[in-house]
Amino acid sequence: MITSPAPAAPPWVQVALSVFGILGGSTGLAAIATVVVQRGKFKADAADTLTEAALTLVQPLQTRITELEGEALHARSELGILREQVNQLQFVVRVLTRTLDRWRAAIRAPDATLRKVRATVAETDRSLENT
């Protein structure tokens, strides 16, 4: 029998066949397939872990921000009330300063008498009662 020599296969085919043979056929291929499939799961697990860690850090910050916003709102409200009180007190100080100036002028007047000073004070009392 005369046999002709087998046709030569490209080198990459021979390498691929050798790798398949070494890996043990279907068992090796199953292992490779498992690794490839698990690769996506590993990425998803890593993303889940990072997301959970970020939420763990962000939630206390969000809670604190909410608390601080409430405190700021309360402080603004208090500031408005205090400004109103300051305005009222400034008005009272101006009124009392004018009253004191009138009394001082009445006392220091060249023609000042006790009766005139008392009349000035009584006039001031009447004007304050009417306001």
Rank of each mutant, 00 (worst) to 15 (best):
A109V: 02
D48S: 04
E71H: 08
T99H: 15
T113Y: 01
E67T: 06
H74S: 10
A75T: 09
L79K: 15
T51R: 10
D101K: 03
V95W: 01
V58F: 07
T49Y: 14
I65T: 04
P110K: 11
T56D: 10
A75H: 05
Q59T: 14
L89T: 09
E84N: 10
H74Q: 12
R83E: 06
W103T: 15
T99Q: 13
G40V: 05
Q38T: 13
R94H: 10
R64C: 01
T49S: 11
A72D: 02
T63R: 01
V92C: 10
K43S: 08
R64Q: 05
I107S: 03
G40E: 02
A75S: 11
W103L: 15
L55H: 07
A106H: 00
H74D: 15
L79R: 14
T63S: 09
V92E: 11
V93R: 14
D101C: 06
R115N: 12
A75E: 11
L89E: 03
E67H: 06
L79G: 12
A46P: 01
T56V: 06
G70Q: 01
L89D: 02
A46M: 08
L50I: 07
P110M: 03
L50Q: 09
R108F: 07
L114C: 04
R102G: 01
D45M: 10
E84H: 08
A53E: 07
D101F: 06
E71V: 03
F42Q: 11
L79T: 06
I65W: 00
K43W: 02
Q85R: 13
A105D: 13
L61G: 01
L61C: 09
D45E: 13
Q59M: 15
E69Q: 10
A106Q: 00
V58Q: 07
G40Q: 05
L55D: 01
L57K: 14
L114Y: 04
Q62E: 15
I81T: 14
L114R: 15
T63C: 03
K116I: 12
K116M: 09
L100A: 13
V58W: 05
L114Q: 11
L100D: 14
R98C: 13
A106T: 00
Q59A: 15
R83Y: 04
L68V: 00
F91K: 15
L79A: 13
E78A: 14
R39G: 09
Q85W: 08
A46F: 02
Q90N: 10
T66I: 03
T99W: 12
L50D: 09
G40M: 04
Q85E: 14
V93D: 15
S77V: 10
D101T: 09
Q59L: 14
R102Q: 11
D48P: 02
A53S: 07
Q88H: 12
F42G: 07
R76D: 13
R94C: 11
R64Y: 02
V92D: 12
K116Y: 08
A47D: 05
T51P: 02
E71N: 04
T49I: 09
Q62L: 12
L61R: 06
L50V: 11
Q85N: 06
E71K: 03
V58C: 08
Q38S: 14
I107W: 08
L68A: 00
R115K: 08
V117C: 02
L73E: 07
R76E: 11
A112I: 05
Q90W: 13
A106P: 01
N87K: 12
A75Q: 07
V95N: 00
P60G: 00
T113N: 02
L82W: 14
D101M: 08
L82M: 13
Q59E: 11
T51K: 12
A53Q: 10
